[in-house]
């Protein structure tokens, strides 16, 4: 028989760096989950994405056990990585601090399509490009559909 689910916890934390502090500590601790067990598993499974923000959906069962699913980093995090930014722009509307290419936008769009609720790659690319501009990145060249 399937285990009874007592709740879900949705967080974003950095790969390889989960610790029993907020937000993980209060969110899981209040459900009676062994936080240290979660941190050990999460950190072992995300070592290749050290320091990158990763969305994680944790399913907590009535016996206090848990499962979790790690998603790929948000589009904005991937954009910063592609733009090789040390820091994002504090003035994104005036101060453009980096560049990405349309092929990089396409790569991220394909990776995040399911999360973006888009039915076509083009609409996902438009959303990712919008995210890029709003964080102070220039998308180089012409869009493929122009």
């Amino acid at each position: 028989m399937a285990k009874e689910i007592s709740g879900f916890v949705k967080l974003q934390c950095k790969g390889g760096q989960a610790n029993p502090a907020p937000p993980i500590g209060p969110a899981l601790g209040s459900k009676g989950v062994n936080i240290m067990e979660f941190c050990k598993q999460f950190n072992a499974r995300t070592q290749d994405k050290m320091g990158k923000v990763l969305p994680v959906l944790i399913t907590v069962y009535s016996d206090k056990s848990f499962d979790f699913v790690i998603k790929t980093p948000p589009a904005a995090v991937q954009l910063m990585e592609h733009a090789k930014l040390q820091k994002g722009s504090k003035e994104p509307n005036r101060n453009k601090v980096g560049k990405v290419t349309w092929s990089q936008v396409e790569e991220i769009a394909k990776d995040k399509m399911a999360d973006l609720n888009c039915f076509t790659v083009e609409s996902a690319m438009r959303m990712v490009a919008g995210t890029a501009r709003s964080m102070g990145l220039i998308v180089e060249g012409n869009a493929p559909w122009n």
Binding site: Q12, P23, V77, L79, M80, L85, K87, G88, S134
Partner: peptide, 21 residues
């Protein structure tokens, strides 16, 4: 929600360790 995502990326570069929303 798109702005929340942008802020998550920018704040993670400013030593913020975790997020919920």
């Amino acid at each position: 929600l798109q702005l929340q995502e942008v802020l998550t990326a920018l704040l993670s570069d400013m030593d913020y360790e975790g997020f919920d929303q």
